[in-house]
């Protein structure tokens, strides 16, 4: 899925992303999942650390649907008939990519600073 420049510009308006939004977008990946599936995926991908609860999930997804980051998807073959399924839109894809990029930049800055500090400390003891 390629990101057009126009989509990229729109995606940047969403940054920085709230934690639940980011986790939901990451959890979905390129899959089509129902709500509980998303909850499980978030848990699996974060090692259980960022577990969110159904209330937060649907309140967040409701806003994401309004914002056009998600759409309801057709039920896959043999799916649970009780539930609705969701997948990312191209905009959702662009947003998660943009957020990842933003965080990457921040992490790079933080790393270089951390190394710099350590170097400075080393200098003083020497």
């Amino acid at each position: 899925m390629s990101v057009t420049p126009e989509l990229h510009t729109r995606a940047r308006e969403f940054l920085p992303l709230g934690a639940p939004v980011f986790h939901i977008l990451l959890a979905l990946g390129h899959d089509t999942l129902h709500g509980y599936g998303i909850l499980e995926a978030i848990e699996a991908k974060t090692g259980g650390e960022a577990a969110i609860l159904p209330g937060t999930l649907y309140a967040t997804m409701n806003r994401m649907l309004d914002d056009g980051l998600l759409v309801e998807a057709d039920r896959p073959e043999g799916a649970d008939a009780r539930r609705k399924y969701y997948r990312r839109t191209p905009l959702g894809h662009a947003v998660v990519a943009a957020e990842a990029h933003r965080l990457q930049v921040l992490i790079d800055v933080a790393r270089s600073e951390a190394t710099g500090t350590r170097a400075a400390e080393g200098g003083e003891t020497a």
Partner: peptide, 17 residues
Amino acid sequence: PFRRLYGADLEADFDDL
């Protein structure tokens, strides 16, 4: 309206949890 949209899913998810 929110309950109409997501009530069934919320219940099902909480049940599974």
